[in-house]
């Protein structure tokens, strides 16, 4: 048994006996159960936005045929509907596919947040029919005209999957190092012939082995068909790697989870920033695309709900690579120079 195998065996047993993986599995089971049996696939609610398609080339025809509840027959009908309630907004589309124009019909205050949302929504509709895919710099994500509407609980699973993998990989690795520092076991490793790469690669592999089963469980419970998606696993593996390296950096720099709780929380929020943008697209900023959570969220979504654009997953995957390379480099250097530092 080589140093790597032995360290891997040691880390696997040590982490497993910490019961943290079981807690993670239980949490994910709970999430899966809620998504499967408690969260509906679709919410029935009265629409707050309606549209009328007055474009010369009937640009919204296909979209309306799929979601007839979204549209009204005439501008007058829309105006009457919007006038009844201040929380309703109507969008009257005119012009053509190439020269779009939109009028917002409402009874709300001119500075109401609802109007801002309506402006964003108008942009989203136009980008949908215009077939604009997402790419760096684009604010809206196009999910394709031909895609099947994704059930609400499945969409939530995609978010949870990315966040679970990020948090578990990050914490698993940081905690392994914290514990070795706390018990002094790291000193025993330092005076053994173990090298930095064996040490770190064993930890990363142990983290992967412990982080991915909860993901499998969640997928099996909510979207079993997706479990064989190579694209999905590619995204999850790259995300786990990136977050493991981030955990290693924290593990080396901080004394313990509680001593460094401020930094742990700060790092967690920084890593979760793309989640806010994911849930509220207007917050999306280009620099957020370099945080691996962004690639994880959008990559998982693209893999779970194919848009018809085959490059979507790979673009998300590639967006994680610079962060992965940088985190791997910093983690390796820190483990070598601080954690396993031997005098020379």
């Amino acid at each position: 048994m080589g140093a790597f195998t032995s360290l891997l065996w040691l880390d696997l047993r040590n982490v497993w006996l910490s019961l943290f993986p079981l807690i993670m599995l239980a949490t994910v089971f709970f999430q899966g159960a809620i998504l499967r049996w408690a969260v509906p696939e679709k919410f029935e609610h009265e629409p707050t936005i309606q549209l009328v398609d007055n474009t010369s080339d009937r640009a919204f025809e296909r979209m309306i045929s799929k979601a007839p509840d979204l549209a009204m027959a005439s501008t007058e009908e829309l105006q009457a509907w919007a006038a009844e309630d201040r929380s309703r907004v109507g969008l009257v589309f005119s012009g053509s596919r190439h020269e779009p124009a939109v009028e917002i019909v409402h009874a709300a205050e001119p500075d109401a947040g609802l109007l801002q949302m309506a402006r964003v929504q108008a942009g989203v509709f136009w980008s949908r029919i215009g077939g604009l895919g997402w790419a760096r710099g684009h604010r809206y994500t196009h999910l394709g005209e031909d895609r099947k509407p994704s059930p609400f609980n499945h969409g939530l699973m995609g978010v949870l999957l990315a966040v679970d993998v990020a948090i578990s990989a990050f914490l698993f690795l940081a905690m392994m190092i914290f514990e070795e520092k706390q018990t002094g076991a790291i000193e025993a490793i330092k005076v053994s012939p173990v090298g930095t790469l064996s040490y770190l690669s064993a930890k990363i592999t142990a983290t992967m082995i412990h982080s991915l089963p909860p993901a499998v469980l969640l997928i099996l419970m909510v979207m079993p068909d997706a479990v064989s998606s190579l694209e999905l696993w590619s995204v999850l593996v790259v995300a786990t790697l990136a977050f493991s390296f981030a955990g290693a950096i924290l593990g080396v720099l901080l004394k313990s989870l509680f001593d460094g709780i401020f930094w742990v929380v700060l790092a967690s929020y920084a890593l979760l920033l793309p989640l806010f943008a994911y849930l509220l697209p207007t917050l999306d900023q280009l620099w957020m695309h370099y945080i691996p959570t962004w690639g994880a969220l959008y990559g998982v979504r693209s893999a779970l709900f194919p848009t018809g654009r085959s490059d979507d997953v790979w673009m998300a995957l590639f967006s994680m690579l610079p962060a992965l390379a940088l985190l791997a480099l910093i983690a390796t250097a820190l483990v070598h120079m601080r954690l396993l530092r031997r005098s020379s």
Binding site: M1, G2, A3, T5, S6, L7, W9, L10, R13, N14, L17, S18, T183, G184, A185, I186, E187, A188, I189, S192, P193, V194
Partner: peptide
Amino acid sequence: NLFERLSGSANLLALAAFY
């Protein structure tokens, strides 16, 4: 400075493989 959750023999075996 030991791996507290592991048994005594596991502590020895884990490091023995490094040599």
